[in-house]
Amino acid sequence: MAEPRNLSRRAFLARIGVLGAALGGGGLLARGLLNPASGATNPLLPPAVDLVRPVLAALARDTLNGLTTFALPGPDQYSRTQRATSRTPGALEAGATDFMISALDNFVPFPDALAQPISAALVTGLADSGVSLPGLEVLPAELRSLDQAFTALLQSDEAIPLSFPIAGLLNLMATQVNPAAVNGLHLSPFARLTYAEKARAFELIEKTDSDLVALLDVHFPEPLKASVSGLLKFVGGALIEFATFGAYSEYGVLDRETKTLRKRPVGWTLTGYQPDGPVEGWDDFIGYYQGRQEVRD
């Protein structure tokens, strides 16, 4: 049974985290800023669009904090929330979230032609998945104005930072795993999950028969549809691998211009890698196995 459009729309925005991030307890937009009256008179809502943009950026960062601490937990609040912490530095100390945002927004050569429809799907999608969300009523009612601003932004020809649809995907999955994640500490549903729940969210993404595209309700023509569906499975794996790579890499302390390190990277400290920094060589040459320096037929 389809919910009335407004309700289902509200649920969807809550699930991808936008509603909570913008308006929920601790939300980034003061409710008064989104005055429903002005929304009704000005469909493009230019001031509200400017307000929504940083909300989306903050939502993406929060979601990715949830991801990078999943890859490398540390002594931070996100790790505490997932109930997998560690006393030694983790992803946040390593700058892994910045690594992910920089990569996604500037370097993943993901064609706009795809990012746009996926993002648009996150705008128009209803995702009536039958999961009932608790606590929707504590989220405020200024849906229409927010939604219009959101829609206006995503339908403009402004390039959508890829971190936004990625965050949307993770949050959608998060609320699938734990509907209660629409509310609580942090801005994003994904960051509110426990470690096991985050794993469960990835299980859903990776599952070979899951059809995320259907869930997103994106209408791609074939054969693009098959491509996008395959792509999302790739994205699931890549997010984990890439976040982990970033967390253990020199990203946070590397000066690219001078090719020097500002500090010892977290990944090196954690693994004891080259205690005195880069070398020209090591004294690790023992000899030749069984003394044999050459073979021939």
Binding site: G237, T244, G246, Y248, S249, T271
Partner: peptide, 19 residues
């Protein structure tokens, strides 16, 4: 370290102990 971490997390078998 980073490539080692990448290599340890590229799997078709989920996450050990989770799925």
């Amino acid at each position: 370290p980073a490539l080692n971490a990448f290599a340890g997390t590229l799997s078709d078998s989920g996450i050990r102990g989770q799925y």
